[in-house]
Simulated assay, not measured.
Amino acid sequence: MTTATLPAPASARRSLPRPRGLLWTVLRLHRTALWVWLAFVAATAGFLLWLTGPAADATQRKLESYGYGGVLEASSSSATLFAFTSGAYNDLFYDPETLITLASFAVALFAAGPLIARELEEGTAQLAWTQSVSPARWLAAKLAVPACFLVLGDGLLVALYRQLWHAHGNLLVAGIGPRALYFSLGPATLAAPLLGLALGALIGLAVRRTLPALALSGFAYFLVYAFRGNHWPFQGRYQQPDLHSRSWAIDTTGARVPDPGCYTDRHCLAAHHIARFGREYLPSPDYWPRQLLETGVLLALAALATATAFAVLRRRAV
């Protein structure tokens, strides 16, 4: 005699728990940080689009209302005419760079504190290791999930920032040398927060206490940032893809005069009867080689910190 097994009702099948992997667990556990990152990317991208569109158009119209402003093209260089009225746009132009830099610091703090050290301090990581998750898989998921979102988000911001630079870099105040954009116009933008993530994870695993890990990771990343800005061996003085060649001024009569060096000081401009400035740019021959070399160094340091983190975890988990 045989017995037939009836299939479970559809309602019963729907009520069965669905398997949830380790990646889903990481997303759910740190969903607040994920939403904060997505909001940051959306807000910064919106700011960059505003600078590319409405803000640039308003600045150009303001310059034209004064009777000057425009671009003169040449075969190997371009001379752009400006007035001090574009100073507000000049300041706003660099704000996204500041936001991106602060985000890299925030990544290092998040990796050291909430991502790693807090779970070790509260014992939730050790509980996961007693289940079906090995310590190595746990750390790999902890690093892989935020790394993917960092690369995607920063990649979008870099693309928008480069579009802004190429479209409206001519609206920056001519006489003032563009401040260093650091990681904001090249692939090093993607490598910098990955290094912060790896450093934070390493410090979190070594310290295993949330507050000390936060402090140490912030200090460690600050040292990297300061060294990169002042003593990076191969950096030199490169700042942007186009280098300032020479500047001049044009007075109220339309004659070209020597640059007096006062670009936003209205009293100085009035004393010299300066109406606008001119500036000549030439392509930087070493920007991309140094940018790519810097990216490689940052990624190598991130890989070294990641390997060290796995070694520390292996010793601590035994």
Results as ranks from 00 to 15, higher is better:
1 M>I: 11
5 T>F: 12
7 P>D: 13
9 P>L: 15
10 A>C: 05
13 R>M: 14
16 L>I: 10
17 P>I: 08
21 G>I: 05
25 T>Q: 08
27 L>W: 14
28 R>C: 03
31 R>E: 04
31 R>I: 11
33 A>V: 08
37 W>F: 14
39 A>E: 10
40 F>G: 00
50 W>I: 00
51 L>F: 02
55 A>F: 07
58 A>Y: 08
65 S>N: 08
68 Y>P: 00
79 A>L: 14
82 F>W: 14
85 T>H: 12
87 G>D: 12
93 F>D: 01
102 L>G: 03
104 S>M: 08
104 S>H: 09
108 A>I: 01
109 L>Q: 07
113 G>C: 06
119 E>R: 00
134 S>K: 06
135 P>K: 08
137 R>Q: 15
138 W>A: 02
139 L>H: 08
142 K>G: 06
149 F>K: 04
151 V>D: 10
162 R>E: 02
169 G>A: 06
170 N>V: 06
172 L>S: 01
175 G>V: 05
176 I>D: 06
179 R>C: 00
180 A>N: 15
182 Y>W: 13
183 F>K: 01
183 F>L: 03
184 S>Y: 09
185 L>W: 11
186 G>D: 15
193 P>R: 10
201 A>I: 05
203 I>T: 04
208 R>D: 02
212 P>W: 10
214 L>C: 10
214 L>E: 08
219 F>N: 00
219 F>M: 12
221 Y>M: 15
224 V>L: 07
229 G>H: 12
230 N>E: 15
235 Q>V: 04
238 Y>A: 06
243 L>V: 05
247 S>A: 03
249 A>D: 09
251 D>V: 03
251 D>I: 04
253 T>V: 00
265 D>R: 07
265 D>E: 11
266 R>M: 11
270 A>G: 02
272 H>K: 11
273 H>G: 00
273 H>L: 11
276 R>M: 13
281 Y>E: 11
287 Y>P: 02
288 W>S: 01
292 L>Y: 14
293 L>E: 13
295 T>S: 13
298 L>G: 01
299 L>T: 05
299 L>Q: 09
302 A>N: 09
303 A>I: 12
305 A>D: 04
305 A>C: 14
308 T>V: 08
313 L>E: 04
313 L>M: 10
316 R>S: 03
